[in-house]
Design a protein around this nucleic acid. Sequence first.
DNA 1: AATGAATGAGGGTTCATTCAT
DNA 2: AATGAATGAACCCTCATTCAT
Lengths: 203, 203, 203, 203
Amino acid sequence: MRADALRNRERIISAAREMFVEQGADVPMDEVARRAGVGNATLYRHFPDRDELIHRVTLHVMERIIDQADSALTEETDAFEALGRFVHAAAEERIGALCPLISQAGDAKDHPETVEAGERLDRAINTLMERARSAGLLRPDVAVGDLMVAVTQLTRPLPGDGCSGFDGYVHRHLQLLLDGLRAPARSELPGSAATLEDLRQLS
Amino acid sequence: MRADALRNRERIISAAREMFVEQGADVPMDEVARRAGVGNATLYRHFPDRDELIHRVTLHVMERIIDQADSALTEETDAFEALGRFVHAAAEERIGALCPLISQAGDAKDHPETVEAGERLDRAINTLMERARSAGLLRPDVAVGDLMVAVTQLTRPLPGDGCSGFDGYVHRHLQLLLDGLRAPARSELPGSAATLEDLRQLS
Amino acid sequence: MRADALRNRERIISAAREMFVEQGADVPMDEVARRAGVGNATLYRHFPDRDELIHRVTLHVMERIIDQADSALTEETDAFEALGRFVHAAAEERIGALCPLISQAGDAKDHPETVEAGERLDRAINTLMERARSAGLLRPDVAVGDLMVAVTQLTRPLPGDGCSGFDGYVHRHLQLLLDGLRAPARSELPGSAATLEDLRQLS
Amino acid sequence: MRADALRNRERIISAAREMFVEQGADVPMDEVARRAGVGNATLYRHFPDRDELIHRVTLHVMERIIDQADSALTEETDAFEALGRFVHAAAEERIGALCPLISQAGDAKDHPETVEAGERLDRAINTLMERARSAGLLRPDVAVGDLMVAVTQLTRPLPGDGCSGFDGYVHRHLQLLLDGLRAPARSELPGSAATLEDLRQLS
DNA sequence: AATGAATGAGGGTTCATTCAT
DNA sequence: AATGAATGAACCCTCATTCAT
């Protein structure tokens, strides 16, 4: 790929990520192109339709979240602290805004690359959780899917514009969740623990 | 109001609530009308535009949630059990699908009726929380806004169709939240406690 | 017809005339009904469709204009003064706003009542003009159709709202027209003199 | 601008002008597009809404009328003949059908380009009138606004379709007006002379 | 490869007219 | 007779996607 084409591709993904965060997946494609500083047809050359664009943006954010999980694992000594750091870092990566998009992107969620990235993400977070669980700090009845769905949901932006003021509260709610995750369990959870793969097949 | 008109109005609200839950606030108005079994112009006679329809649906659900809070307060003896019952009942009322709609309905969130219903909701839930807090069962550093936002977020449906399989997991996550809410607090929360009014003004 | 029905009919015609003058023939029927203080279905009972309403309003104004012609004939001694008085009076009757409506009312302009009223109007104005012509005050190469079309056009309101400020100028332009009608003719007119019947058949 | 886009733009303006003349400002936008041989969205790309389309069409016709005024000034020796030629030429440019549209186009009449074109038009016609007035051929108590409103009104098409037969009479009425404008004045005019700017501010 | 331009399908809303009370 | 309510067709406008330069 030519160097300028690659640069365009990256600018489009970056613009799309920003706009998806701010305005959701329904943002007009022309607006994405304009924010990226390219013509609309250039956008379509790189991403044949909206689904493909969403697909690539979500893959991109999954990679970043995997990186965050790895960093937290490496750089934090306390196992539960590592989990907490990861949770708050995932929020900053806008997991709540971006990951749910995949359910709007046709069959993208079953695409091999998505599945594969999901597996790596599952492994990375599972490692984090396993370490905390082994240390007796994490309640034993939760799995990666539980954590990721809860974090995603708690950090989802409200539809429509302008509710960005809520961001300040998000970390409070994540902290409440983390307190609920701490061992020992204070109640019995209904249902059963879910992996990311379980969730993917459900959706 | 004429009897048939009232019946139509109720059928429209009911259809709209169902479709908002299933497909979000962007459902075509004509589809809502069709589901309600009326012509599209009948819908517009009752609700001059989409904002008004959303406004009335959200008011309706707020009333139902207030009722749930009152029931929980009356019928449960354990104060924390009451809170838990209310949280799960609010999920069943689809608080996560319906309350966020108000931010998509223009100025509806500042409408006097919405404000007033919000105040009553705040009082009802505050009573529930106060009772649990007095009994030493609820951590003292949370307020109504914290609870309601977290519950709303955790129960929001994913965008797009068909992810209804997640519903089974929602109650797990609510339970995690409730465990995090229990006294004693396991960590210090960032930021400060919010009332519903605080949140309304933010949004 | 019952007394209250007759009263309603008159209120509707009156409301329609006002609104046609202010907003043109495209005013919503429901608005006419509201201005008249009746239900919309009552309007439709009296006038089966918009064309019929326009038809009746224009007949009504034609009668009033005939009256104005008769008054001018009777009450003015100078024959050209009588013509001038009539022209300005027709403007006040909103001939320019109301008579053109008939061309928007389907086949109403060929309705026997319209034809008959047109004939009476033609006779009345012709009498006025003939008297002025006999007195050597009116140029001989103009007929009723010329006068009425020119007066109608010069007094037509602009489409859209709010241009009522123009009214002040209308009488200036009518006066210019009257000066052009005075004998002796200052130029030769193209085409030939037209009766109202000529015009009706054209339109 | 690309050559094909420019061609489309001109075809749209041309189609719109024809249809505005025939059917008024309320023609469906889709019909204009169809007459122009383009898709409806192409029309909207060039003219974001109906107001903008009207705005551009009226600007276009104003330019053509200015040209007519200049031609009449240059090519006619007799000063009143020049005025007469201009008046009839303005009628052929459909001034009566097109200029009133501007009052239906939102704030277009206060748009700088419209104001500026109006000023040039005022100057061009004022030159014509001044020359005739200096030659003692034009009555002194009229101004540009008087002339233009009268010409516009006398040449306005009737609402609705099909009354094109009237066109033959229009030049008769313009001639009557011109005879009324000739010096010496045969009566005193009510009100005061108006410039185009006066009229714009009124409307 | 990049892009401005074109397009057709779809959704929101209005309104003339008809229906039911 | 009077009326509030219901309706479907029409129109404006947007946008995802394709085409032509």
